[in-house]
Write a protein that binds this DNA or RNA. Structure first.
Lengths: 158, 158
DNA sequence: TATTGTTATACTCTATAACTATA
DNA sequence: TATAGTTATAGAGTATAACAATA
């Protein structure tokens, strides 16, 4: 990354301008996650899914009959924010809202046949994506990474 | 997490409802980063900084005189999105925009005395935050984590 | 022609308050 | 009273197109 204005040369040209920030795991994680998120979004675009709609679909298929509040808790998404996600998946015919007979306030979420089919397709896409981004790492490194992220989350949730 | 509606018991009560997603590092990273980001935001609130404004301030102090386009590149933020960040820091008297004599299109960003002071204060806050979230990990685990995140980002950036 | 900073705009994710209908 | 789902709303991060001034 050479510069065309060397007269006003500054540190940005010689060392990483974000050197101090690179010392923070939080910053490194943000940069990493942004890249992962953008790459995954590109790959899920063909299925018209985003990380969040993909996640919701997976949980509904894996836990047919769960309520919206349970889905929200599982994904750590505020209930209001989940409404549009469920709306979208329902309008696309991937999941259904059905009244819970024992509690008329609640809706049980169940996948449709199309939802289950997309589940398998999308899972393959995301599995391939994972394999790609983890290609440079050993199983042991991935294990350590996963454990470390869990530990950090626990500390941050305090 | 016991349920009050065991009649309609489902998997969400017994195993983690997001079990499949937990198998993906991308999902684990998202959940972890959300927690870290929220916690850091709380701690930076006292200084009226966010992760992004903090990051911009750090880079400007460390690289006095760099241009907005260089700051954008350093932080991997699109140029239009950086304008409001720089505006905010400038209005608060933390940095200054000064014309570059050799290129009248460009602005050089330099920190004020107040900016340099906040730099040190904020750095301490974030360093303490880092220590907190990394408390459960050994230096070796943190090293592996950092290397793994860098490797993943590189793969994702393709 | 290309680049710097900017404006306008849109999409997504996240967060909170308040409503309704039930429990 | 409390809870489930919803509506409305706002803040924040991210992305692209297009413009004026300048190189």
């Amino acid at each position: 990354m050479t510069s065309h204005h060397d007269i006003t040369a500054n540190a940005a040209d010689t060392v990483q301008a974000d050197h101090t920030l690179r010392g923070f795991i939080g910053y490194v994680m943000k940069r990493c996650f942004n890249s992962v998120q953008a790459d995954l979004a590109r790959e899920l675009e063909a299925l018209d899914l985003r990380m969040l709609t993909f996640s919701a679909l997976i949980v509904v298929v894996d836990n047919a009959g769960l309520r919206q509040s349970e889905l929200a808790q599982a994904l750590s998404v505020e209930r209001p924010n989940l409404v549009v996600i469920v709306d979208e998946l329902e309008k696309r015919g991937l999941i259904k809202r059905t009244q819970v007979p024992t509690d008329r306030r609640a809706y049980a979420l169940t996948p449709t046949a199309a939802g289950k089919e997309l589940y398998h397709t999308a899972l393959k896409v995301v599995q391939d994506h994972e394999a790609k981004i983890l290609a440079g790492l050993t199983d042991e490194q991935v294990r350590t990474l996963r454990d470390a992220l869990k530990s950090i989350q626990k500390s941050a949730d305090g």
